[in-house]
Every structure is written in structure tokens, then in C-alpha cells.
Simulated assay, not measured.
Amino acid sequence: MNGFLGEFLGTFILIVFGTGCGAAANLKKSYAKGANWMYISLAWGMAVTFGVYVAGQFGSDGHLNPAVTLGFAAFGFFPWSQVLPYLLGQFLGAFLGAAIVIIHYYPHFKESSSEDGNSVGIFATGPAINNGLFNFLSETIATFVFIFTLLNLGNFTQGLKPLIVGLLIMVIGQALGSTTGFALNPARDFSPRLAYSILPVPNKGGANWAYAWVPICGPIVGGLLAACLQAVLK
């Protein structure tokens, strides 16, 4: 239960901060409307930092990400017995976080049409250039770099390491994230996309489910490759 609770609360914090910055940058009459890519990358990095801190305080390893959990478990860095509680916590926490952002920004959603920025892009990722193969490769490469680095940080819930993880997310966003929006995380993408799709968001656009396989499959493959390399090198 500690693993579930930590992952649930940590991922909840991650998504409140991350999708909250997406809403702030996109919705009409928000003071942050039109914020640049540096704002987005930094906000998501700090969202991960504080999510990891919260998760660690409630007894989990601060994965917040099925690609981390599955990659670590597949190559012996994490026990399989904990995988299901971690995954449940991540997907449920991400959904609740997105729901809270919808409530918080509800008047701004009412003021914004899909043309104004009221789109699934607040909650989930999409490609700058729609090319399924290369979008998949982008997510795979970015997640590989992320998780391989993560595997070499040791216990990343302690001390200043969550801040280092956040800075890692930020630089991945700046270096590799502008092709697909750097999901890196199936729960971070799927659950907020689902929340936007099924909750009563005013004036919303489509959820682009045709693309949703990319931020699910790409990160999982990237995580497995990174953990495989780590296991071979160790």
C-alpha cells in the first residue's frame, strides 16, 4: 500500500503542476497565455521534482511512470510484486490530477474555444510533424536517455536528487522534446487524455486518440532498452 499511495500522490502532484502549466499557457485570459517552450520544460521538470519528493515521503521509489516501473522490473532493478500497485497509483493519480486542473481552470475553459487553445494538448502530447514512425522513435530515444540516466542516480528520492531528476526532465524537453512534446510517461499522457475526453470540459476539442499509442509504446520501449543496457553493462 505504501508503494501505491506514494505513486498515487506523487503522480497527482506531477500532473497538477504539469498540466496546470499547460492550461496556463494555452487558455484565454490566463496571465501566462502564450508562454514559451522554456516555461513548459522548466515547469514539467519542477513538477517531476516535487512529485518525486512527495512519493518518497509516502514510501514509494518515486517512479511516477510506468516506463520506469516496467523497465526496472524487467531487468531486475525492481520487484515484480510491486509493479501492479505502482501502475495503479500512477494512472489513477494522473487522472485525478488532470481532473483538478479542469476544475481549477473551468472559467478559462468556458472562455476558450478549441481554436483559442482549449485542446487536448493542455493534457497530453501531440507531434509537431505527424509521422508515426519518427514520433515513436522520438519518444523511444528521449525515454531511453531519461531512464538510462535515472538508473545511474541511485536512490533518486533522497536529498537533492529529485531536483536533479527535474533538471534532467527539463534538458530532455529542451533537447529532444520539441518533436512530440516529450511524454516520456504513458500515465502522464493516457490518464489526462482520458480525463479531457470524458469529463465535462466546456468547448473542448478532440482527444486525438489515434496518436495515443505513441506516448504509450515509445516510452515503454525506451525504458526497456535503457534497463537492458544498464543490466548488460553492470
Results as ranks from 00 to 15, higher is better:
98 A>W: 08
77 F>H: 13
64 L>M: 08
72 F>D: 01
142 A>K: 03
140 T>I: 09
71 G>L: 08
76 G>Y: 09
68 V>K: 03
80 W>H: 10
99 A>M: 12
134 F>Y: 14
85 P>T: 05
98 A>S: 13
131 N>R: 15
126 G>N: 10
145 V>K: 03
112 S>K: 09
76 G>C: 09
143 T>E: 06
122 I>V: 14
78 F>S: 00
150 L>G: 06
125 T>K: 08
130 N>T: 10
109 F>Y: 12
145 V>L: 14
150 L>K: 07
112 S>L: 12
108 H>L: 13
119 S>K: 13
152 N>F: 12
69 T>C: 05
128 A>G: 02
110 K>R: 15
136 F>W: 14
86 Y>P: 02
98 A>L: 07
77 F>C: 00
78 F>D: 01
140 T>N: 02
82 Q>D: 13
94 A>G: 15
150 L>R: 06
108 H>I: 00
75 F>I: 04
73 A>V: 05
93 G>N: 08
101 V>H: 03
90 Q>I: 04
125 T>A: 11
137 L>R: 02
72 F>E: 02
100 I>W: 02
116 D>R: 10
131 N>I: 13
146 F>Y: 15
98 A>G: 15
66 P>I: 03
145 V>W: 08
152 N>I: 01
114 S>F: 11
74 A>E: 02
97 G>H: 07
95 F>H: 06
70 L>N: 00
132 G>Q: 08
95 F>E: 05
73 A>I: 04
96 L>D: 01
121 G>F: 11
127 P>E: 09
94 A>D: 07
137 L>E: 04
84 L>Q: 03
129 I>Q: 13
148 F>G: 09
89 G>M: 08
67 A>Q: 06
97 G>R: 09
64 L>D: 04
146 F>M: 15
150 L>M: 13
135 N>T: 12
77 F>R: 12
101 V>F: 03
143 T>C: 10
115 E>N: 13
116 D>G: 11
